[in-house]
Amino acid sequence: MTEPILKVEDIHVYYGSIHAVKGISFEVNEGEIVTLIGANGAGKSTTLNTISCLLHPSTGSVSLLGKPLAKTPPHKVVERGLAQVPEGRRIFLQMTVQENLEMGAYTQTARGASGVAQDLERVYDFFPRLGERRRQVAGTLSGGEQQMLAMGRALMSRPKLLMLDEPSMGLAPILVEQIFEIIADLHKKGSTILLVEQNAQMALSIASRGYVLETGKIVTTGTGEELLASPAIKKAYLGGD
């Protein structure tokens, strides 16, 4: 088998004395959408931030394409091919749409101005609404557009792995569907994606595999279909019977 893109091995993460992540292991292979689902406070964002090296595990390791990420400063992680769309989008509200995208390409110096311009056009093709609003200040965008911008911005770094933290958060149901379509579309076009969600139904329906997180531990794993069909999952996360 080929090397997984991301391999997380038995990581434990603390905030001071709070043990937020208690021995999580999983991997993401090239071309997959893997989803981490779980309720509030399960440790999903903590896991993503540990992978992005914003937090450091007390034990355990994270490796990207077979090389450990330990002690890499967060800004270097992006150069290594990891992009995270953080929870709550965190776009630069006072900068224009285009400037936000340019910040996404901050590490792409080797590609030069023309390479970045090409990538910009690719993002605008993919998200025409961003193209129409490229000179607009990002704070004036609607919630859905802001999420598109956050994703477009992450794509500008040409990531080998795109991590999305609750992209559907705070969006109207119709926009949630649209965002999941976009994610499925990105996947079809070749992106490898690690998707963190509370919306288990939607996430599992597009995922290759899923992991269920409860209070810092993985309690169940399986393919998207298996998890969707599992009675325990239905009961706990899909609000169904």
Partner: peptide
């Protein structure tokens, strides 16, 4: 400039700037 825009990005949100690969 790239550096100048990075400064504005850091002024707004250092965490997000780091996720862009900016050395804060």
């Amino acid at each position: 400039t790239r550096m100048g825009k990075a400064m504005r990005a850091c002024s707004e949100d250092k965490g997000a700037a780091q996720l862009m690969g900016i050395n804060v």
